[in-house]
């Protein structure tokens, strides 16, 4: 296990490096001059050159990257071209929306998907097993923002039970109001995420239900429910856990889109605005952070899978495969 951890951590470091270089290069080589964001329409060439100098985009790529890395080490992601505020503090100010949104949606999705996936597998061939399977097929096909729009229309605009969007100015100092404004967005993302997660849980649950070891447990007198608790959850977790990392990435993506439906001041709406305004430091900052988070969660998930499944780790001899 120790050997594996070292190897996997090295791989993580390598992926982080590769991804940050890739992002950096991609943002620089793609056509489109960030200096434009600083300039008024009809600016002179001299003004443009000055703007480029100010941004440092007139330096060679390698120097730019070196500088960016140095700043990154000090957690300095540069300043927004539009607001001139440090990107780090802009991001920090918005994590309070995006992190709870993503995490709550993810937890709710898992809470829906695990029992549903098991139920569909257990009730195959019955009408409501088929119905649940159909509903989750539907969930795989709906765009998350459309679900958001429909929910807003029904629960906010027609029934007026919940706010249609926005976030309290006091932030989490007003926890009740903050939670209320996150409720619809969380449900929106969770419903769509639950559909794809259900699919994985269902497939894994079928494997467990058809497994000889579950049959053995039952043949020796374990009631189905007890056998499922004891063997089923583990058996499903082993293949599903590594998928969770990718699912969490999609949840974040759902958050990016859904924040725009609900006018939430999170990373997603910041990112979309930055794209529209060609605010490159902000784009790069948010993307670097989100990629790093996803890669790190992948590392955690892979390690967790090894802890669950002894077949993946080699014992004693230390041959880490």
């Amino acid at each position: 296990m120790a050997a594996y951890l070292v190897r996997r951590a090295l791989l993580l470091a390598l992926s982080l490096a590769v991804s940050s270089v890739a992002l950096f290069v991609l943002l620089r080589v793609l056509p489109g001059d960030p200096a434009n964001a600083l300039l008024d329409v009809g600016a002179t060439a001299r003004q443009a050159a000055a703007a480029r100098h100010e941004l440092g985009t007139d330096l060679p790529l390698s120097q730019q990257f070196g500088g960016w890395l140095r700043d990154l080490a000090r957690l300095d992601l540069g300043r927004s071209l539009v607001s001139s505020l440090p990107v780090t503090s802009e991001i920090a100010g918005r994590l309070g929306v995006t992190v709870p949104l993503t995490v709550l949606a993810f937890l709710l999705a898992a809470l829906i998907a695990v029992p549903t996936g098991f139920l569909i597998a257990l009730r195959r061939g019955t009408w409501y097993g088929t119905l649940l399977a159909g509903v989750s097929q539907l969930g795989l096909a709906v765009p998350v923002f459309w679900v958001g729009m429909l929910l807003v229309t029904v629960f906010a605009l027609r029934l007026r039970w919940l706010p249609a969007g926005g976030f309290p100015a006091e932030d989490w100092a007003a926890p009740a109001a903050a939670l209320t404004s996150l409720l619809l967005p969380v449900v929106t993302i969770a419903l769509v995420m639950a559909a794809s997660l259900t699919r994985y849980v269902h497939s894994a649950a079928l494997d467990v239900l058809d497994s000889d070891y579950l049959r053995t447990a039952r043949a020796l007198g374990a009631p189905l429910r007890a056998a499922l608790w004891r063997h089923g959850l583990r058996g499903v977790a082993a293949p599903v856990v590594p998928i969770l990392a990718i699912e969490l990435a999609s949840t974040f993506l759902g958050a990016v889109v859904v924040e725009n439906v609900f006018a939430l001041p999170g990373l997603g709406s910041m990112l979309v605005r930055a794209f529209a305004q060609h605010d490159y430091p902000v784009i790069q900052g948010v993307l670097t952070l989100s990629t790093a988070t996803v890669l790190t969660i992948g590392f955690v998930a892979d390690t967790a899978q090894r802890l669950i499944d002894p077949r993946l780790r080699r014992t004693a001899a230390g041959t880490s495969a």
Partner: peptide, 8 residues
């Protein structure tokens, strides 16, 4: 082999 839970 299949009769035993591989994870336990």
């Amino acid at each position: 082999l299949a009769a035993l839970d591989p994870l336990m």
